[in-house]
């Protein structure tokens, strides 16, 4: 069965870049969201088992989204994909329950490596 994957980023270019970076042999059903609020809706509908989440977004940012997911115990494996690569950002999202922190721009190799590392692929 196809894995429900959610890509959440306010930039349409970044969403596209992320979708392209997913392994070609991975059977997925991709849903897109532009901010955290939309992402949470999608996750509640069961369409975000694996989530690629940006941090800097309007309406509801990545940190707030992670905090909500954690507090409400939503079922989602979140991988943060961020342009903010300061050590503090990584520490903070890990504490908020993100599986991994990937630097933008995302590459196909990096995506495959992380998915394999966590046994998702």
């Amino acid at each position: 069965m196809a894995t429900p994957v959610l890509i959440c980023d306010d930039s349409s270019f970044a969403r596209k870049q992320m979708a392209r970076a997913l392994p070609k042999n991975w059977d997925v059903e991709i849903t897109f969201a532009c901010n955290g609020e939309e992402a949470i809706q999608v996750i509640k509908e069961g369409k975000g088992e694996v989530v690629f989440l940006d941090l800097t977004m309007p309406v509801m940012d990545g940190y707030e989204t992670l905090a909500y997911i954690k507090k409400n115990e939503l079922n989602a494996c979140v991988i943060v994909v961020s342009g903010d690569i300061q050590p503090e950002a990584r520490a903070e999202v890990t504490q908020l329950g993100a599986l991994e922190f990937i630097k933008k721009p995302i590459s196909t190799d990096k995506a495959a490596e992380v998915l394999t590392k966590f046994g998702i692929l």
Binding site: S11, T56, P105
Partner: peptide, 12 residues
């Protein structure tokens, strides 16, 4: 949008 995302990564 693309310029903004490129800038976002570079600025980070």
């Amino acid at each position: 949008d693309c310029y903004q995302e490129i800038s976002n990564v570079a600025m980070g």
